[in-house]
């Protein structure tokens, strides 16, 4: 039994092992984002962001509200395109991608975890986790199998048939993490994932992120305004007024070499 688990972990590590030479997963140069372009009230939110995130990293981006966190998250998550600058995600230049290609990139390469969970109401946890696979064209049987698998891994195996309104906040966020993981994305993008949770539940959710990082070698970008949580990550970037003003090594960097 123990041998089997060790073997499985070894295989997982092998698969998740970064390719050599290491290419940044996120490669941002001079990213600027403006709103109301060409109008008198034109507003630049991001004033040139340079950011590299390498495969397997656990990066926290902290900043107060109004610092441009959300805008940066939208650009990292290819929900939005920068006004200026280049963004290459896992080798794909976002600037050239069309809307449908962006949708496909979000689907295959990014797993979103939101502060407000954003589970689809009136659909069971299982159906919610199946959703990204539906858009990826995974066949029905395979969808259900993988969704069950991931729900079990996040500790929600006994509540697969529950609807979101029958779950607590922490449980909902665990379902959301399973949903983010199920398409085996290159990047997990979490926007204040513990923002709506009490400290105890926050701990559980954060531990889950650490597990995703360590065990499945996921690259995680965590956006938060909680410095304590940010410290747990390997690298902490501080965003202020649309610029990255500080970069620190987090405590998490000691945990893994």
């Amino acid at each position: 039994m123990a041998d089997k688990r060790q073997f499985a972990q070894a295989v997982a590590r092998h698969i998740g092992a970064p390719a050599i030479p290491r290419r940044p997963l996120i490669q941002m140069r001079g990213i600027r984002k403006s709103y109301y372009i060409g109008q008198p009230n034109e507003l630049e939110i991001l004033h040139g962001i340079d950011l590299q995130v390498y495969p397997g990293e656990f990066v926290a981006i902290v900043g107060e509200s109004g610092s441009g966190k959300s805008t940066l998250m939208n650009i990292i998550g290819v929900l939005d395109k920068p006004t200026q600058g280049s963004y290459i995600l896992d080798g794909v230049n976002i600037h050239d991608a069309k809307d449908n290609e962006l949708a496909a990139i979000r689907n295959r390469k990014i797993g979103f975890v939101f502060q407000t969970y954003n589970l689809i109401g009136r659909q069971s946890a299982l159906k919610n986790v199946e959703l990204p696979m539906l858009y990826a064209g995974v066949p029905g049987g395979e969808r259900a199998r993988r969704a069950k698998d991931w729900l079990t891994r996040v500790g929600m195996g006994d509540r697969m048939r529950h609807q979101p309104n029958e779950l607590s906040g922490g449980q909902k966020q665990r379902v959301a993490i399973a949903r983010a993981m199920v398409n085996n994305p290159a990047l997990i993008l979490a926007d204040e994932p513990t923002g709506a949770l009490d400290s105890e539940t926050s701990r559980v959710v954060m531990d889950l992120f650490h597990e995703m990082h360590r065990r499945y070698h996921k690259t995680i970008v965590l956006i938060t305004h909680n410095p304590a949580l940010a410290k747990e990550c390997e690298r902490v970037l501080t965003l202020k007024d649309g610029r990255i003003v500080d970069e620190q090594k987090g405590e998490g960097a000691d945990g893994i070499v």
Partner: peptide, 16 residues
């Protein structure tokens, strides 16, 4: 609207 936004974030193309 939020559901639609979520679906799009999860990678649903407009056609879907």
């Amino acid at each position: 609207t939020r559901e639609i936004g979520t679906r799009k974030a999860l990678g649903a193309p407009s056609s879907a």
